[in-house]
Design a protein around this nucleic acid. Structure first.
Length: 489
RNA sequence: GGCGACGUACCCAAGUGGCAAGGGGGAGGUCUGCAAAACCUUUAUCCAGCGGUUCGAAUCCGCUCGUCGCCUCCA
């Protein structure tokens, strides 16, 4: 298995520190607002990485933190006139609401910064003692000069940073690049006792303290959005490695951004969509498929058109599953019919099935190439449909289609996609589209139309079809009766 | 200014040395009472441009153009 390591800028063979075990630490969110689609991407990407490693038989311990104390949380609390911890509690709950809908599983450990103050203080104290950090007016700063490898992840040199002249010049710091490990609290701010007086932790130190606490001094995979490379992960490396003398993480994995009109979606630009805004119009699985249809490191442009494409693909998937189900029940009824075997179509399906699992794993082994993996899924969908069209019947055909079902199931469970029944997909779409009909209403209409068709009253039959179509429902006449689906426009 | 990424058809997107996956859309066809779905044919002799390496390159190297990101909180 190969994983792209931001540290080397190359794909590297994945070898965990301890055989068959993987420790993953992914930087989570600062909980001061609703999550946007960019947060969703990161969460979904690491969710899939974790699921795939599990699938490969590795014992994964996945840690994803919540930053529950920080300037923005305090500001939010002041703006809303509530306590800072009320803000963090609220947005943690909202985070779960969104992520649950997107099929993102809980991490094994979801530590909060404020539950690890003591661990942070221990690291900071040690860094001060070792001469890597210094105290200044009640705050503690990490001395970047004291860590020779500073910049090794982001490829930034001290002189380059200064040339940018965008680094905060603070009187209290010896070097503009030094960063706060501990901040003296200002009047009215939350605080914890420390050897340097009342204060609160800086941002970067929490990940060091929590990663070490829950995963040990060296972890296998450390990840997050690409915007965390500098300064966050760079600073984590500096303080962690200065503290332990050991490499902090073996593989640095960073997901790309989501852009809008080619510009990075971000809070500061204001060009973001929250997850729940998008969920108003689109089924959560559409978002998940959209996010996984590109490689995790590529930038992806967010647009309604893209979501619509994903919706059409997903509908294609579920339509095929419906055909598969129909076929399997029909075959059981006519299992004794002589199969007409082994023509080219059957051969093609066999060939695709024979290699499917391998190709799926190959794709995922190659730096978690979900886009390619999904491509394989749809190739299988195509040849399955073709096979179904050829109207085979009998035991061999049943076995092949059963295998296709199984193959789709394996891929779907790793990606956590395609987990519904076609009926559920359409019923859920009814709700997403806000179509004021229940499946029972529709079934009734289908019965009415059936009667009309039996009387060869095509005018009435067609008017029922038309009436439903205007509401966004398509009727499909098949051998075993009439089915319905929500029209993808 | 420093560092880095990317540029594949109408749109999205995979593909890091050997005949360009997959999805969406368009056109024509088969099937159907009419439809829909599905399938078939078609839509890149070519991968931003120009040079180079090679028997052979979208894939490696160089240059040019274009787009984006990081260098400030940010997934």
């Amino acid at each position: 298995m190969k994983v792209f390591n931001s540290m080397s800028g190359k794909k590297e063979d994945f070898v965990p520190i301890e055989k068959d075990k993987v420790g993953i630490y992914a930087c989570g969110v600062t909980v001061y607002d609703y999550s946007h689609i960019g947060h969703a991407r990161s969460a979904v990407v690491f969710d899939v990485i974790r699921r795939y490693l599990n699938y490969k038989g590795l014992a994964v311990k996945y840690v994803r933190n919540f930053t529950d104390i920080d300037d923005k949380i305090i500001k939010r609390a002041n703006d809303d006139g509530i306590a800072w911890d009320e803000v963090s509690r609220k947005y943690i709950a909202e985070y779960y609401t969104d992520m649950d809908r997107l099929g993102v599983a809980r991490a094994d450990v979801e530590p909060k910064a404020t539950d690890h103050i003591q661990e942070m203080l221990n690291v900071i104290k040690a860094l001060v003692d070792m001469g890597h950090a210094y105290v200044s007016e009640g705050s503690v700063y990490f001395a970047v000069d004291s860590f020779r490898d500073y910049g090794k992840l982001s490829g930034k040199e001290q002189k380059d940073l200064l040339a940018g002249a965008r680094v905060n010049i603070e009187e209290k710091k010896r070097n503009p690049s030094d960063f706060a490990l501990w901040k003296a609290s200002k009047e009215g701010e939350p605080w914890w006792e420390s050897p340097w007086g009342k204060g609160r932790p800086g941002w970067h130190i929490e990940c060091t303290a929590m990663a070490i606490r829950h995963l040990g001094e060296s972890i296998d995979i450390h990840g997050g959005g690409a915007d965390l490379i500098f300064p966050h992960h760079e600073n984590e490396i500096a303080q962690s490695e200065a503290f332990t003398g050991k490499p902090f993480a073996r593989y640095w994995v960073h997901n790309g951004f989501i852009t809008i009109d080619k510009e990075k979606m971000s809070k500061s630009l204001g060009n973001f969509f929250t997850i729940r805004e998008i969920l108003e119009k689109y089924d959560p699985e559409i978002i998940r498929l959209f996010l996984l249809s590109s490689h995790y490191r590529s930038p992806i442009e967010f647009s309604n058109e893209q979501l619509h494409d994903a919706e059409s693909s997903l509908d294609r998937y579920y339509s095929t599953v419906a055909r598969i189900n129909e076929f399997l029940s029909a075959v059981q009824a006519t299992a004794q019919r002589t199969p007409k075997n082994d023509d080219a179509v059957m051969g093609e399906l066999k060939a695709v099935l024979d290699t499917f699992k391998n190709r799926f794993e190959e794709a995922m082994d190659d730096d978690f190439n979900t886009a390619l993996a999904i491509g394989h899924v749809f190739e299988l969908i195509r040849v399955t449909n073709k096979f179904l069209d050829a109207k085979h019947s009998g035991g061999d055909a049943q076995k092949l289609i059963g295998q296709a079902q199984e193959a789709l199931h394996i891929a779907g469970s790793v990606l956590n996609l395609f987990q519904r029944t076609p009926a559920k997909w359409n019923i859920d779409l009814l709700a997403t589209r806000k179509i004021p009909l229940t499946s029972i209403d529709i079934e009734q209409k289908i019965e009415d139309r059936k009667a009309a068709r039996q009387n060869k009253d095509w005018t009435l039959a067609d008017s029922i079809r038309k009436e439903l179509e205007e509401m966004g429902i398509l009727l499909e006449d098949g051998k075993s009766g009439t089915g319905w689906k929500v029209k993808i426009v």
